[in-house]
Amino acid sequence: MTEDDRVFKALADPTRRFLLDLLFIRDGRTLTELESELDMTRFGVMKHLRTLEEANLVVTKKSGREKLHYLNPVPIRLLHDRWIDKFTEENAAALTELKRELEREEP
């Protein structure tokens, strides 16, 4: 499995996207903090975090007895640059212009 495949797999699940959102809002959370935001078992949260770590979207750091989880946005940015940017540049400009034209024609 390629790095891109691991990132796409990790992002495909809404629970994992929610975990990334939580880390975006406040980085450096413990498993207990993340678990408190979800209606699932500790084991379930750990499984999702493992998938995010395998995709390098989450990195962990020991702080005393705690393990803190941090968002790593680099893999998402790399996907954006490779898969989204090149396909949307011209299309987005064309759609923006079409929107402006249609709005001018409305009564």
Rank of each mutant, 00 (worst) to 15 (best):
F87C: 02
A92W: 11
N91A: 13
L22F: 03
R77W: 03
Y70L: 13
P107V: 06
E105H: 09
V45I: 07
G44H: 02
A12L: 15
R26P: 06
L34V: 12
T88H: 02
R77V: 13
L19M: 12
T60I: 10
R50V: 05
D5V: 06
A94D: 08
E89I: 04
L95V: 13
E90Y: 04
E89Y: 04
T32H: 11
N91E: 15
P107A: 15
R100Y: 00
L34Q: 03
A92I: 09
K62A: 13
I84F: 07
F24R: 11
S36F: 00
T41S: 15
I25L: 14
R50G: 01
R50I: 05
N56Y: 09
L98N: 09
D13S: 04
V74I: 02
G44Y: 05
E66A: 14
L19W: 12
V58K: 09
I84N: 03
E106Q: 14
D21Y: 00
A55R: 03
E101I: 02
K67E: 08
V7E: 07
E37F: 06
L22K: 15
K61M: 13
R17L: 14
D85Y: 13
L57C: 05
K61Y: 03
L78D: 09
D39P: 12
L38G: 00
D85S: 07
L23K: 04
F18L: 15
L20E: 00
R16G: 08
R65P: 00
R42F: 00
I25N: 08
F24V: 10
D39R: 11
I76L: 15
R26D: 11
K47A: 14
H80Q: 07
R29F: 02
G64L: 15
D4I: 12
L68D: 14
N72Q: 03
F87E: 14
F18M: 13
V59A: 08
T88M: 14
A12D: 09
T2H: 08
F87L: 10
F8E: 03
K67L: 15
